[in-house]
Amino acid sequence: MAKSNNNNRNMSVEEAGKKGGEKVSEKYNQEHFEEIGQKGGEKTSEKYNQKHFEDIGQKGGETTSQKKDKEFYQEIGKKGGETTSEKHGEEFYEDIGQKGGNRSRGGRSNR
């Protein structure tokens, strides 16, 4: 265990990690973390193919569905719908409704 400056008591790994994380957070701004996150994402996408991401997405979805209930999915669906409606106007919904109707009719358009 790491020694703490607080009465020379031993610090847990969790406490040491938290303390280190707070120091790093104080040292760097939001932009720094966005930049390193972007770089990490780019490197990861170069390293792995699309099938890899499909596989881990599938596994994650299966794990989530085993752990979460119907109310969880209703709540995130509602939040997603609210966020979408805040970002898009009436025209957006008319357009996607038109596209859905056209697809249902087999691609025929009455426009």
Rank of each mutant, 00 (worst) to 15 (best):
N102F: 02
Y48E: 08
E14Y: 09
K67D: 06
T63A: 14
G89S: 03
S109A: 11
K99I: 12
G37L: 01
H52W: 11
G106W: 00
G77F: 09
G41V: 05
Q74V: 12
G20L: 13
E90D: 09
E22F: 01
N10E: 13
N10F: 14
K70D: 10
K87E: 03
V24M: 14
R111Y: 08
G101K: 14
E86F: 03
K39N: 11
G17A: 07
D95V: 08
K23R: 13
D95T: 10
Y73V: 10
Q50S: 05
S25G: 04
N10K: 08
F72G: 01
R103Y: 06
G40A: 09
Q58I: 02
N7Y: 04
N110W: 08
E90C: 01
N5K: 10
A2D: 09
M1K: 13
Y93L: 02
E34N: 11
S45D: 08
G61C: 10
F53T: 11
K79G: 05
G101A: 15
N7K: 13
E14D: 11
R9N: 12
T44F: 12
G60M: 04
S12R: 03
K87C: 02
V13P: 01
M1D: 10
G101F: 13
Q38W: 10
Y73K: 01
S45T: 13
Q66R: 14
R111I: 03
K59I: 09
I36H: 01
G57C: 06
V24W: 04
S85T: 04
K51H: 09
E22C: 02
A16Y: 00
E34C: 10
G81L: 02
K19W: 05
N49P: 02
T44I: 12
E42V: 13
G106A: 08
D55A: 11
Q38H: 13
G80Y: 04
G89V: 01
H88A: 00
Q58R: 14
D69M: 02
E91Y: 03
G21V: 00
S109C: 05
S65A: 14
E35H: 11
K27S: 07
G57N: 07
G101C: 09
D95I: 06
R9D: 07
Q30T: 10
G40D: 04
E54Q: 15
S12N: 11
Y73Q: 03
E54G: 07
N5H: 04
K78F: 05
Y73P: 07
T83D: 07
H88Y: 15
K59W: 03
R103W: 12
K78S: 12
G41D: 02
Y73H: 03
H32P: 02
E94N: 15
S4W: 00
K70W: 05
H32R: 02
T84H: 02
E94P: 08
E34T: 08
T83I: 11
E90V: 03
E94L: 14
Y28N: 12
Y28Q: 06
T44H: 07
S12C: 13
A16D: 00
G101Y: 13
F33K: 06
G106H: 01
F33S: 04
Y48G: 09
F53V: 07
T84D: 05
E34M: 11
N29Y: 00
K67H: 08
R111F: 07
Q30S: 09
T64M: 15
I76M: 15
G106V: 04
G20S: 12
K27M: 15
N49D: 15
Q38F: 12
